[in-house]
């Protein structure tokens, strides 16, 4: 075959692949919104579910979906950014850092149901937190740690070495250099990682059902059980309670995740523009 002919075929195949990807995305969004938007109104958003969710709204689940990722972020961000600072600024690249990095990559590969089991055994049973926002938040925190560490590490590394050099040459200590020069420069990247992690934990089901439970009451403390929208959707659909309300929940979930990703994308672009 002539190279020119192959070129044409390859180009068409690549285009088809790309088109298929976009098409699937559009199909999912369209399908969920088409089925879900019908049941969504203010009542649906602001009232509690009745009859296990067959009628009524999803207000407690919205609260759960906000509070659980929030707890996870509050725990995981300092831990993850601290690890990233340690890896990039306080150690020299070597076997030790490679082992730590390999460890965090492995953590990222662990299936979420295993995290759920781990969280159930450790937090719910052994530490006695019960099915609660605390147990769920801690479990989610460990799930999103790899993302936060990785993005923080990359953005800390992308701060030019010359900034560190000048700071040291002006008599700054390592910690002053990190807090005054390195972290401000890396901030947009770190924030992007945090937002992506929020998106990930908002959509998480398997691990949350094991650790935060599925109570439909509005939680009043960290030790209360709570149900997120993702879990609510799963239970409504799985138990055949109400497909309409399941789609309504899914539609809101998808809109939220799209919003979160858009913000992350926008921040990432601003970040790139600043250093390139």
């Amino acid at each position: 075959m002539k190279p020119k002919f192959i070129e044409q075929i390859v180009k068409k195949m690549l285009l088809a692949g790309t088109g298929l990807t976009i098409l699937i995305l559009i199909f999912i969004i369209f399908y969920v919104l088409k089925n879900g938007l019908a049941v969504i109104d203010l009542e649906f958003l602001l009232s509690s579910p009745k009859e296990l969710g067959r009628t009524g709204g999803i207000f407690p689940c919205i609260i759960g979906t906000i509070i659980l990722p929030l707890v996870a972020i509050v725990i995981a961000t300092p831990l993850g950014v601290g690890t990233a600072i340690y890896l990039t600024e306080y150690t020299r690249e070597g076997r030790w850092t490679r082992i730590i990095r390999f460890g965090t990559e492995c953590l990222a590969g662990v299936p979420s149901i295993i995290f759920g089991l781990f969280g159930f055994v450790l937090f719910v049973v052994y530490l006695g937190f019960g099915w609660s926002i605390l147990s769920g938040g801690l479990t989610l925190a460990f799930m999103i740690l790899p993302t936060i560490i990785r993005t923080a590490e990359e953005s800390i590394k992308s701060v030019p070495f010359s900034y560190r050099e000048v700071s040291f040459s002006l008599g700054g200590t390592k910690w002053q250099t990190i807090t005054k020069v390195v972290l401000p420069g890396a901030l947009p990247g770190i924030v992007t990682g945090v937002i992506l992690s929020i998106g990930k934990s908002v959509g998480e089901t398997a691990s949350v059902i094991f650790t935060a439970g599925s109570s439909l009451l509005i939680p009043t403390s960290l030790f209360d059980s709570s149900r997120t929208m993702a879990v609510h959707f799963y239970l409504l659909a799985r138990e055949g309670i109400s497909m309409e309300n399941a789609y309504g929940t899914a539609a809101i979930l998808i809109i939220i995740i799209l919003l979160i990703n858009s913000v992350a994308y926008w921040l990432m672009h601003r970040f790139m523009a600043k250093f390139l």
Binding site: S162, Y163, E165, V166, V181, G185
Partner: peptide
């Protein structure tokens, strides 16, 4: 330094 390296 060789190149102006003001902080951002």
């Amino acid at each position: 330094f060789q190149r102006p390296n003001c902080f951002p």
